[in-house]
Amino acid sequence: MSRVDENRKSVRFSSQTDGKLGRTKRDLIVQMIDYFYKSKKDPADLNDELLKKELSNGVGRILAFIRKQESDLLAPMFRLSDEVSNLLKLDVTLTNKILENQSKLGAISNEHKNKLIDQTKLLEQLVIGLSSKQQLKKEFRKILAHYISNR
């Protein structure tokens, strides 16, 4: 007489399904039964409204999280990037004005330099003229003194 174990029932799977399990058939069945018992889900009900509702709530929570991140992080970052962009445009404008004014200042500086060079040359000519005038006076005094002494 063979003894029958009340805790054993047979379940058969194809060899492909058996390879996918990754656990014993008995463990799989026990885990499935525990899952359905704890979640109060009927495996025969393919249109499980509770599962649909949970999935819908999950999607809603994810969308709320994304909206919150958008308002807390993305919107301020976009505002700041717009401000930085405007500041860069202003900086480029100011830099161009500075370069333009530096160019004008360089031209004015060159004009003053040329005028100073011209004035320096004129002063040198005056100094040369004055020294030659002094020389002429000395020579004239010598001639006059010589004329007076000979007379």
Rank of each mutant, 00 (worst) to 15 (best):
L51G: 03
F13A: 00
D18L: 10
R61G: 00
L21A: 02
K41C: 06
G19L: 13
K52S: 03
K53R: 11
D34E: 15
A64F: 05
T24M: 03
L50C: 02
D48Y: 05
L51H: 08
F65Y: 11
P43R: 10
I62F: 12
P43E: 14
M32Y: 07
P43L: 12
K41W: 01
F36L: 07
A64L: 14
L21V: 06
P43F: 12
E54I: 10
V59H: 09
D48W: 07
S14Y: 02
T24P: 03
G60Y: 12
D34F: 03
S15N: 11
N57L: 13
K52H: 03
T24S: 15
M32R: 01
I29E: 04
G60M: 06
D18V: 03
I33N: 00
V30G: 00
Q16S: 04
L51W: 03
K25N: 05
T17P: 00
L63D: 10
V59S: 04
K20N: 07
I62M: 15
M32D: 02
K38H: 10
L28I: 04
G60V: 01
G60C: 02
V30N: 02
D45W: 00
D48Q: 03
K25Q: 14
T17G: 00
V30A: 07
F13Q: 00
K38I: 09
Q16N: 06
K53Q: 12
I33S: 00
A64P: 06
L28D: 06
Q31K: 15
F65V: 04
S15Y: 03
E54D: 04
K52V: 10
E49L: 13
I29N: 02
D18C: 02
L51S: 04
I29Q: 03
L55M: 12
L63P: 00
S15L: 08
K53F: 07
E54M: 06
I62R: 15
L63A: 05
I62N: 10
T17K: 04
Y37H: 07
A64V: 09
F36D: 00
D42P: 14
T24D: 02
K25W: 06
S39G: 01
F65S: 11
T24A: 07
A44T: 13
G19C: 07
G22F: 09
Q16P: 05
G22A: 11
D42Q: 04
S14A: 01
A44C: 07
Y37S: 07
Q16K: 15
R23S: 10
G58N: 08
L50M: 05
K38C: 02
P43G: 05
L63F: 01
F36N: 01
D34W: 07
S14K: 01
A64W: 02
A64D: 14
